[in-house]
């Protein structure tokens, strides 16, 4: 009898372990977005303009260089930071100034941001400045219907003319 109880208790404990494994392997479920929300993903990787204008080297400067290094036009290596502003329905949603990567600040500026927004029809306006003067040279606007759980990706690609809205 004592052994039967022992075995029963063993089975019970194995079952408890199995129930714990089974339950926590998929429950409680995780809600990625709150109910009634959609998601905007602002994401781009863009190399901005150099921080300053190029200039020509003087004859004295060129003479000091090795013959194979005598390039007349010299440009600053560092790039300007990229400024981005996103508005939703005329109100600011997000803005960021992304510094260029690299020890010499000569790499691309990368931005990735998840922006949960209420589901529904919205008009998004995005602006980007990538020069030393901070002027927003790229502007785009798009009206989007975002059902709950929908993802809108706002990308930036100079080759495609600037901002790209991917639904």
């Amino acid at each position: 009898m004592r052994n039967v109880l022992r075995y029963a208790a063993q089975v019970l404990l194995y079952v408890a372990f199995g129930v714990a494994l089974g339950y926590f392997s998929s429950y409680p479920v995780f809600r990625v977005l709150a109910p009634g929300q959609a998601l905007v993903r602002l994401s781009f990787s863009h190399g901005a303009q150099p921080i300053g204008p190029c200039r020509e080297r003087t004859a004295e400067e060129l003479a000091k260089l090795a013959p194979n290094m005598r390039v007349k036009l010299v440009c600053p290596r560092e790039r300007a930071p990229v400024k981005v502003e996103v508005e939703m329905d005329g109100k600011p949603l997000y803005q960021v100034t992304a510094a260029p990567a690299g020890l010499k600040h000569d790499g691309v500026s990368t931005v990735y941001r998840r922006l949960p927004v209420p589901a529904g029809k919205h008009t998004f306006k995005a602006r980007l400045a990538d020069g030393p003067d901070g002027e927003f040279k790229y502007v785009a606007e798009q009206a989007v219907d975002l059902p709950p759980g929908k993802v809108l990706v706002i990308d930036f690609n100079v080759g495609k003319g600037g901002f790209v809205f991917v639904e």
């Binding site: 494994l21 429950y27 479920v29 995780f30 809600r31 977005l33 059902p147 929908k150 993802v151």
Partner: peptide, 20 residues
């Protein structure tokens, strides 16, 4: 579905708890 997120994800809390 790259255009939408699932409403709820059945997370394996032993391994994937780092995401939440």
């Amino acid at each position: 579905d790259y255009g939408a997120l699932p409403a709820a994800v059945p997370v394996d809390w032993f391994l994937l708890f780092v995401h939440p």
